[in-house]
Design a protein around this nucleic acid. Structure first.
Lengths: 204, 204
DNA sequence: TAAAAAATCATTAAAAAAGAGGATAGAAAA
DNA sequence: TTTTCTATCCTCTTTTTTAATGATTTTTTA
């Protein structure tokens, strides 16, 4: 039996690339593609692919949210995260939300097939590069707490400590404490560096 | 005569996608691809493609720098910028450095061929989406001066006004003035927002 | 359940940034 | 050539952030 593959990516060239890579694979049945989350969900109402290759960045919704939704509706479907970025935070998020694996867009045909076959068997798959970056000891920046992340986002939005305090119903000194631990964990010395680093790590 | 095409992109799936899109085009001769700036330059020592499709983000060097270098070495070569991002600043930068056009990675085969044929004739080509975003009135953020940009980068690196002043051989109040005009031009109210917005606009 | 981590609050003080105002000289553009 | 833009400098005030220390209460986790 052939494996039904469906691709969700907003870049036509990437879709075409995957299609081209897989077209001579006899075990693969190309079921189609979507360029956004909405049309992906519509497609799934009518068809049942075995594996979905899902970009992390979609125009209408983040791949992470879409992943969660699809998993809730169709728990049997295997989802492979797809991205240009090799970022621990995103990968973890994707896995936590039901993806069985993660492939980078510079993956070769062999890697891609290996990934598809792995997740079909219910096994987790990561690109080689992803694996090696996951093995690295986690930098502090990914250990920020939920509250710290909230504060971080509000700082990036330009709110002052007083405004953040009001918004989160906490006191200004508390906001300050979170702020300090953010600076520590990111190993930066001021807000400017904090935001620059956090943005680079796509936490914002 | 066929048009020699060469692609520089660090994502194998994109390369494969373009190859697949162009493989049935009789006027196109696929000359190969490179996944980084260095191997692109090596290739060009031995071959002479007519059109280079060049990703803006490369692992070893920015596409903008590579574009400049290639144009200096081989002025006759037509370069088409290639990117996922539709960002005025990048596009302008690419064009200023010798690219004849700019195509997004969600371009269709037709768009791609039109782009290739345009630049072959020496005409400038932009994706439809790029065009419409270029038509929008320029937000203030792209009107920042050279000095302001220097200051912006140093702020993002976490330097204080005093440190920036020392580095640029100017006084602290001057740094402050630049800082203030940055805040004004970006329409933000503090450093955090400034860095967040500037990073989003890929000015940093 | 005991230990660790997270979230909360407080005080005090120094450093830095932001805001308002004005001023000058040189370069570039209209 | 007049005007505009850029870069430079100034003062003064207020707001905000950063730093240093200490402490209490929930939550999580081993």
């Amino acid at each position: 039996m052939k494996t039904g593959i469906f691709v969700v990516d907003d870049h036509y060239m990437v879709i075409e690339g995957i299609r081209s890579l897989l077209q001579n694979e006899k075990t693969v049945d190309w079921m189609g593609h979507a360029t956004n989350a909405e049309s992906c969900l519509s497609f799934l109402k009518l068809h049942e692919p075995d594996v979905i290759l899902m970009d992390v960045n979609l125009p209408d919704k983040s791949g992470i949210d879409l992943c969660k939704e699809v998993k809730q509706l169709y728990p049997a479907m295997a989802i492979l995260g797809l991205s240009t970025f090799n970022q621990q935070a995103i990968i973890k998020n994707m896995i936590d939300n039901g993806a069985l694996g993660y492939v980078l867009k510079n993956a070769t045909k062999e890697e891609l097939m290996e990934a598809i076959n792995s997740v079909l068997k219910g096994k987790v798959y990561y690109s080689f590069e992803v694996l090696s970056s996951l093995r690295k000891p986690e930098p502090n920046q990914f250990l920020i707490t939920r509250r710290e992340k909230e504060v971080l986002l509000l700082i990036a939005e330009g709110l002052t400590n007083a405004e953040i305090a009001e918004k989160l119903f906490i006191s200004v000194p508390t906001v300050n404490t979170h702020r300090k631990s953010l600076l520590e964990k990111f190993e930066v010395k001021n807000t400017a560096m904090l935001i620059a680093k956090a943005t680079k790590l796509e936490l914002i």
